[in-house]
């Protein structure tokens, strides 16, 4: 488990699988296999976080797959709030007991606050997307970004304009920025990533790094550039 030649560790922080998201066509093993195939072509993808829609199964365990393919596989959730979708990492029983995860209108302030209080971290997903992204709620409804530390600026399911809108929001309010593929199908995994400065092999690592703010979003093509530059 080492950083790439330029000192980065690349994680896809947003993905869905057939295990728990009914709109997904990709299996967890399929994602791991695809990452191995991408690595053979020079791309750097160290792992991914499964963020299934509106649920979290504390008993799901992907350790065997993770070891078999040499890919970090972590689990979070994508919840639905009054300011759009929110990715939550390291959901503790204390956190999940406090919310009906299946709800489509959770109080975002409570989600962000409780995530941090219970050892987790929350990120506003696909922030530039109409209706389900934070930007529209900030600019259209006057919602503040109080309590929000990071947004998903680069989302694989958003178009260029939407990702640009998220970038403007991050710059305007000084929010940290992550990247995630929002993969629902195998070949989309790792399309957008977050570049961290330290290896991440556990949810505790992930939360610790997200709290530092020392990361940025990248496309998978940018990891190839990094590899090429590093080899020179």
């Amino acid at each position: 488990m080492t950083l790439d030649a330029n000192g980065y560790w690349y994680m896809d922080l947003h993905s869905h699988s057939t295990d728990a998201s009914d709109d997904a066509g990709g299996t967890v093993e399929g994602y791991a296999k695809w990452i191995v195939a991408r690595r053979k072509k020079g791309f750097h993808i160290d792992g991914f976080v499964l963020t299934e829609h509106r649920q979290f199964d504390p008993d799901a365990d992907y350790t065997a797959l993770s070891e078999q393919y040499g890919v970090t596989i972590l689990r979070g959730a994508e919840l639905e709030t009054d300011i759009g979708h929110v990715l939550v990492y390291n959901l503790s029983p204390e956190f999940t007991r406090g919310f009906d995860l299946a709800s489509v209108s959770l109080d975002h302030k409570e989600v962000f606050k409780r995530a941090r209080e219970t050892g987790g971290f929350a990120v506003a997903a696909h922030a530039g997307r109409p209706r389900i992204g934070l930007a529209e709620h900030v600019h259209g409804r006057g919602v503040t970004t109080d309590g929000i530390e990071a947004i998903e600026q680069l989302n694989g399911g958003s178009n260029d304009e939407e990702n640009g809108r998220a970038q403007e929001l991050a710059e305007q309010f000084g929010l940290h920025r992550v990247g995630g593929s929002d993969a629902h199908f195998v070949s989309a995994i790792g399309r957008c990533l977050t570049a961290f400065r330290r290896p991440i092999t556990s949810l505790e690592d992930l939360v610790q790094e997200l709290a530092t703010g020392e990361y940025h979003p990248v496309t998978v093509e940018q990891t190839l550039d990094a590899a090429t530059e590093g080899a020179r």
Partner: peptide
């Protein structure tokens, strides 16, 4: 052979995705 199939447009969107 398993395949992913999708349509990608000039706006960077994948409006149709499947297997």
């Amino acid at each position: 052979v398993k395949l992913d199939v999708y349509l990608e447009n000039e706006r960077g969107e994948r409006p149709v995705q499947g297997t």
